[in-house]
Deep mutational scan, measured.
Amino acid sequence: ETFPLDVLVNTAAEDLPRGVDPSRKENFLSDEDFKAVFGMTRSAFANLPLWKQQNLKKEKGLF
């Protein structure tokens, strides 16, 4: 299941849709939104070091 970017960005855990893991908001973006937000594919993002993934998520309001 995916959700629009505005539902996930800068949203407190208690305000997220049911079933969304607040530590993994990026997994609930569509592939198109994911690429638009991070400028890379999911596989490229997954290959980044964890610290870099976290920094990007913070920068984009998805942490």
Rank of each mutant, 00 (worst) to 15 (best):
60 K>N: 11
52 K>Y: 12
2 T>Y: 15
22 P>V: 07
29 L>A: 01
32 E>I: 11
18 R>W: 09
3 F>T: 03
50 L>R: 09
46 A>G: 11
4 P>R: 02
40 M>P: 00
50 L>M: 12
4 P>I: 04
3 F>C: 07
27 N>P: 03
39 G>M: 09
8 L>I: 06
11 T>V: 14
37 V>N: 02
39 G>R: 07
60 K>V: 13
5 L>G: 03
16 L>H: 04
6 D>M: 09
62 L>C: 09
18 R>I: 15
26 E>M: 03
23 S>C: 15
17 P>G: 05
1 E>A: 13
47 N>H: 12
39 G>S: 08
6 D>E: 14
34 F>Q: 00
43 S>M: 14
18 R>S: 15
30 S>G: 05
43 S>K: 13
18 R>D: 14
9 V>N: 07
63 F>K: 06
58 K>D: 06
41 T>S: 13
24 R>K: 13
40 M>W: 01
39 G>Q: 11
20 V>M: 06
17 P>D: 05
59 E>G: 05
26 E>D: 04
6 D>Q: 10
10 N>E: 07
11 T>K: 11
21 D>V: 05
45 F>G: 00
6 D>L: 09
42 R>Q: 05
12 A>S: 13
56 L>V: 04
42 R>M: 04
12 A>K: 14
44 A>K: 09
28 F>D: 04
32 E>H: 11
48 L>H: 01
5 L>Y: 15
51 W>N: 08
45 F>H: 00
62 L>G: 04
44 A>R: 09
3 F>I: 07
15 D>N: 12
41 T>I: 08
13 A>L: 13
44 A>L: 09
35 K>Y: 15
58 K>T: 08
33 D>Y: 03
7 V>W: 13
53 Q>D: 00
10 N>Q: 10
51 W>L: 09
2 T>K: 11
10 N>V: 08
38 F>C: 01
8 L>D: 03
45 F>I: 00
22 P>A: 11
3 F>Y: 15
42 R>G: 01
45 F>C: 00
41 T>W: 03
62 L>N: 02
4 P>S: 07
55 N>A: 15
20 V>G: 04
62 L>Q: 04
62 L>F: 11
52 K>V: 14
14 E>I: 11
32 E>R: 09
30 S>R: 05
59 E>N: 07
18 R>K: 15
37 V>C: 12
10 N>W: 05
43 S>W: 13
52 K>F: 13
6 D>G: 09
57 K>N: 02
61 G>V: 01
21 D>M: 04
3 F>E: 03
12 A>D: 10
9 V>I: 14
50 L>P: 11
46 A>E: 11
18 R>C: 15
34 F>T: 00
13 A>W: 12
1 E>N: 12
57 K>W: 07
48 L>E: 02
43 S>V: 13
27 N>D: 15
60 K>E: 02
16 L>V: 06
41 T>R: 03
25 K>D: 04
54 Q>P: 00
49 P>E: 07
8 L>Q: 03
43 S>P: 08
58 K>I: 14
59 E>I: 11
38 F>H: 00
49 P>I: 01
56 L>Y: 05
35 K>I: 14
15 D>R: 09
30 S>D: 07
9 V>L: 13
26 E>Y: 03
19 G>C: 11
14 E>V: 12
36 A>R: 12
10 N>S: 08
29 L>R: 01
56 L>D: 01
7 V>E: 07
18 R>P: 15
10 N>Y: 06
37 V>G: 00
40 M>H: 01
57 K>D: 01
37 V>P: 00
7 V>R: 12
41 T>P: 08
2 T>S: 09
41 T>L: 08
21 D>T: 05
56 L>F: 05
35 K>L: 15
53 Q>R: 09
58 K>E: 11
39 G>H: 10
55 N>Y: 13
45 F>Y: 05
45 F>P: 00
31 D>N: 08
8 L>V: 04
47 N>K: 15
57 K>M: 07
41 T>C: 08
33 D>L: 05
31 D>V: 06
23 S>T: 14
9 V>R: 12
46 A>Q: 12
33 D>W: 05
55 N>V: 13
21 D>P: 03
60 K>I: 06
9 V>E: 05
54 Q>D: 14
50 L>I: 12
54 Q>K: 11
45 F>N: 00
40 M>S: 00
14 E>Q: 13
35 K>S: 12
63 F>E: 14
60 K>T: 08
61 G>F: 05
37 V>S: 03
36 A>C: 11
23 S>Y: 14
60 K>W: 04
55 N>L: 14
12 A>E: 09
12 A>Y: 06
7 V>C: 13
43 S>I: 13
51 W>S: 09
3 F>G: 04
20 V>W: 04
27 N>H: 12
49 P>N: 02
23 S>W: 13
47 N>T: 12
42 R>P: 05
15 D>Y: 08
48 L>R: 00
46 A>W: 10
23 S>Q: 14
38 F>D: 00
11 T>M: 12
19 G>T: 09
46 A>Y: 14
55 N>W: 12
15 D>L: 15
32 E>Q: 11
35 K>V: 14
63 F>L: 15
25 K>F: 06
29 L>I: 08
45 F>Q: 00
43 S>Q: 14
36 A>T: 12
48 L>W: 02
48 L>C: 02
20 V>F: 06
32 E>G: 11
1 E>M: 15
57 K>C: 08
61 G>M: 04
20 V>A: 05
30 S>Y: 02
35 K>P: 01
24 R>N: 09
38 F>W: 01
7 V>S: 09
23 S>K: 13
52 K>E: 14
46 A>K: 12
10 N>G: 11
18 R>V: 14
29 L>E: 02
42 R>F: 04
18 R>T: 13
8 L>Y: 02
44 A>I: 10
58 K>C: 14
32 E>A: 12
53 Q>M: 02
20 V>D: 05
56 L>G: 00
32 E>P: 08
1 E>S: 13
61 G>S: 03
40 M>F: 04
52 K>D: 12
19 G>K: 08
8 L>A: 04
14 E>P: 11
28 F>Y: 15
50 L>Y: 13
4 P>E: 06
27 N>T: 09
33 D>G: 03
42 R>Y: 05
54 Q>C: 14
37 V>R: 01
1 E>R: 10
28 F>E: 06
34 F>M: 01
59 E>A: 12
56 L>E: 02
60 K>Y: 08
18 R>Y: 11
24 R>H: 15
30 S>A: 07
24 R>E: 06
5 L>E: 02
42 R>D: 00
44 A>V: 11
23 S>A: 14
26 E>C: 06
8 L>N: 04
39 G>E: 09
12 A>V: 09
63 F>R: 06
16 L>C: 07
1 E>T: 13
32 E>K: 10
11 T>R: 09
4 P>M: 04
5 L>V: 09
